[in-house]
């Protein structure tokens, strides 16, 4: 099947990601990860960044790829964990912790859902030498689940629960992911939103306004929630 998707650049990225590898990434590139990644979201950020609890594992030595995810993991009789499908959670909620998290964890790659704002990339990511990769479709849970080869360890499980714990995962061919934020602070989503803005003027043409407005209604259709 020949489709419009054929022109995208596909790259393998080994962890820990090196500065040289990250510098090659451009927004819209398709990425597959190989190596070790770990999950961490609001539970981990609050505990480590706000409460100052020391990290349960030497993260910079383990991996520099932080995945915004709660795995659908179930405990097996042998004490291990089975991971079924894996999907990221929306990342924009975590922007406020990023600056201090980068300093604490040494993370250089954030993998999540839906990206953060271009301003976040320029303020927090660019100074830290970090990029943002988004999962695709929301989500390719089965493909990402297949990419998780083993649960290496889980930390803060009792303190934070299955969904919020810090899971260290060995991954292979983990993707596809798209580069949303590159080292220059560009945002793929913002570029695409700008293209859409030009079309919005015409799509409403000829449709009468409703009789009554609506509380909370946005008046600028260029607005977005993120």
């Amino acid at each position: 099947m020949v489709t419009a998707a054929g022109n995208l650049r596909q790259l393998r990225l080994k962890t820990p990601a090196s500065p040289a590898d990250l510098a090659r990434l451009r927004i819209g590139d398709v990425i597959y990860l190989h190596g070790v990644i770990y999950t961490g979201r609001e539970g981990v950020y609050r505990r480590a960044v706000e409460e100052g609890v020391p990290l349960p594992v030497d993260l910079p030595a383990v991996s520099n790829v932080n995945f915004h995810c709660s795995p659908a993991a179930s405990r097996q009789p042998d004490g291990g964990y089975r991971v079924g499908a894996v999907t990221a959670t929306a990342s924009f909620r975590f922007a406020k912790w990023m600056e201090r998290w980068f300093a604490l964890s040494g993370a250089k790659v954030i993998v999540g859902k839906g990206g953060m704002s271009g301003e976040d990339y320029r303020r927090f990511f660019r100074p830290a030498g970090a990029v943002y990769l988004t999962t695709v479709g929301y989500g390719t849970g089965a493909l990402l689940g297949r990419g998780v080869k083993r649960v290496r360890s889980v930390h803060w499980l009792e303190e934070l629960g299955i969904a919020q714990a810090l899971w260290v995962l060995e991954v292979e061919n983990f993707g596809p992911l798209l580069v949303d934020g590159d080292l220059a602070g560009n945002s793929l989503f913002e570029r695409e939103n700008a293209k859409l803005g030009e079309r919005l003027r015409t799509i409403y043409e000829g449709l009468r306004e409703p009789a009554l407005g609506r509380y909370g209604e946005t008046t600028d259709r260029g607005d977005e929630m993120v």
């Binding site: 079924g84 929301y138 089965a142």
Partner: peptide, 23 residues
């Protein structure tokens, strides 16, 4: 590209008998 990835994902889900989406 996203739609093609979804097709591949649905094939993987059926083959592996794992949920197509973690949510």
């Amino acid at each position: 590209f996203v739609l093609e990835a979804m097709l591949e994902n649905w094939r993987a889900a059926s083959t592996d008998r794992r949920p197509m989406c973690a949510d």
